[in-house]
Design a protein around this nucleic acid. Structure first.
Lengths: 218, 218, 218, 218
DNA sequence: TATGAATGAGCCTTCATTCAT
DNA sequence: TATGAATGAAGGCTCATTCAT
């Protein structure tokens, strides 16, 4: 092996290439779906040859995996920016967190629809391990809510026998329909505020109270 | 009298064959997805040659359409058996309907997991018109709940400004995660009763009340 | 073998069935071509099941062969009705025969376009032996003209060194374009009289004379 | 200066590949016909995989179109090399052109039998637009002869009421039988000179004169 | 004898992946 | 290292032919 001195000229190149590819993949997968995107289209959109693409990823499948990772990362980041993860100290605070969560998700529907679309729409489209991997986004969200619920139980302001696992998933699912509408057409076709208000109203008082409560939305 | 010559047609053969094919398709599509199932696999699973398959359906796509129709039909039938559609006369009655709905869905997760999986999982996997057709199942459910809500508003025991469209979809979505769990692996991995209880509790009192209410589940 | 007495009930049935099939085949092959006609279409047009069709003919190919035989037969019959085959006794008589021939052919374009279309259009479409068989119609015509030419040579009013084989084929070919036009669209789009006149004029005087001859047509 | 990365494209590769494919297609289509040649056979004969074939042509049909274009081009080129298109100034000159035309065609029967066979044999074999496209070769020839005839009429040495359209087609058709013989078996089985002489004799004097004229051929 | 349901080889076309340059 | 030409298995679909009834 010939001795090389100094920084190799390709330092960072690998990272850059992979980034190029993943960005292109997010665009394409979100719009045309995984199966609807060919490797050739992917390479062209990424501005490189197919060979290059296969140099940095072993298979189209592997690209999907990384795309999912990135989406989940973006989601987590968005959640952390907003103080969604800050532990609440009362039922009201819990509802507040859920409202924040909903707002974050709808915000992403506007700023990063690709990400959301991948996490929501493609998630169940893929079979076997692929699907499982994509479910991570949803599991992540559910875990967060479950954490909030568990916290409430530990603190004593939520009943001990709550099924936090089931409940957290159900709460997350509440946002799906609105998000799907906002993400499918490529632009928002539902009013995020109204949808968030409906969800918050539901988790706050159930169906009973809204008949009397004048101001469930913020 | 025109003499009937030749082999008399087996009574109901067409119906039987189509049924065979649709059953096989439900199995395959539910497990491997529409795109993941080839016509050859379909034919083999149906116990016939490909030519036979194409004798009874013009295209693979047409089979999907019929499968969806059948799924939606099964869903509607299941809902009608249980008196889900009977109009409630109070918030409590509304919650009761939602509980019924949830139980019907979880019941199907046990008795007809293929149907549910198609309606829930494949629904968003297919692009364009195909997806739209599959969304029918979810729209059907949402329409039922929206009907219940609207009824409550007309009767005066629900607030007039409720966003019944958004709310109905959100309520339906509440059941998804539990159903998905019960449907993905091919067998139930979640306790239907617990999940239903969680959902009913949520729509009854929101997150606030459960801390005090001793008996939200049935 | 059980002894049968009297005329078997199916006497003539075979002939009738074969006739049914061949008639249908002439219709279909002439309009949609041999490759463009499926066995199922053939059977339906013949008013019977596919199995019956295969009882009377070993293969679709065999049907074509018989269709060609029938076409050639029709052609020969048409030629015999008109006294085309009657030996001429002078160059003028020869031209007269050729005019008759042309008129017979154009007559068939009106009365039996299927036959002509098969003989002309399908003739070269089929490979190998199939094509050869179809060429029979054209060979038959050429043989007739060659006979007329040979007769003239023997009688002394045609030059001995005429290439009667080549010439006869060339003369027959003269009619093709006009016939094709009259046969392709399903109805005559060319005036048979004009075309015949042009052909007769050509074989009568060549290109030179028509400039001076006032009446080459009949 | 944008640095060229990767493997430099082989100069003219596309042209070479397309040529390879078209050559193979001319071979196959001429021998087995368009419908009788599968894409797989085509690819094998061209010495490449099917995928490669489809890289250079969008469909089998597109290959046929290009093959036809090429055939027509070859035909036109052959006609232009020989001064077939030079306007004649007398009936004798016209006959000379027709002789040239005949010789060109028979020349092609020897040097490019595939081309001729496609133009003559496949022309009427294909239905619809495909056939129309293939007819171009024959129309091209007829147009040339019609042009010569029209020229003669304008110059006054051909009768005004000649049906130049019908006549031109008839004259072209004169050569077909000889060409077909020379083309079908893959090698000439008819003597081009004799056939040309017969045709030229016919168009020169009709059937009448040859009995007295000692030297109609060149 | 007549039927038409059943078959499966074969057709055209696509695309993930490889590899010579 | 980057490229994109090449590959061939696989997909959806057709149809000549067979055979149980």
């Amino acid at each position: 092996m010939p001795l090389r001195r100094g920084r190799p000229p390709t330092a960072g190149l690998t990272a850059q290439r992979r980034d190029q590819i993943l960005s292109a993949a997010m665009d394409m997968f979100a719009v045309r779906g995984y199966d609807g995107t060919s490797a050739a289209q992917l390479a062209e959109h990424a501005g490189m040859g197919m060979g290059t693409l296969y140099r940095y990823f072993g298979s189209k499948r592997e690209i999907l995996d990384q795309v999912v990772d990135r989406c989940v990362g973006e989601l987590r980041e968005a959640l952390e920016c907003r103080s969604v993860l800050r532990p609440p100290d009362s039922p009201a605070g819990l509802v507040e967190r859920i409202r924040d969560l909903s707002e974050v998700l709808f915000g992403m529907a506007g700023t990063a629809p690709r990400t959301l679309r991948l996490l929501l729409v493609e998630a169940n489209a893929l079979e076997d391990e692929r699907g499982c991997r994509l479910m991570r986004g949803q599991n992540e969200l559910a875990a967060i809510v479950a954490g909030l619920l568990d916290h409430g139980i530990e603190d004593g302001w939520l009943r001990r026998d709550l099924d936090t696992s089931a409940l957290s998933q159900a709460i997350i699912a509440l946002t799906w329909p609105g998000l799907l509408r906002g993400v499918s057409g490529g632009h928002l076709t539902v009013d995020p505020d109204r949808y968030t208000a409906a969800v918050v109203g539901l988790v706050t008082f159930g169906l009973r109270a809204p008949t009397r409560v004048p101001e469930p939305a913020r």
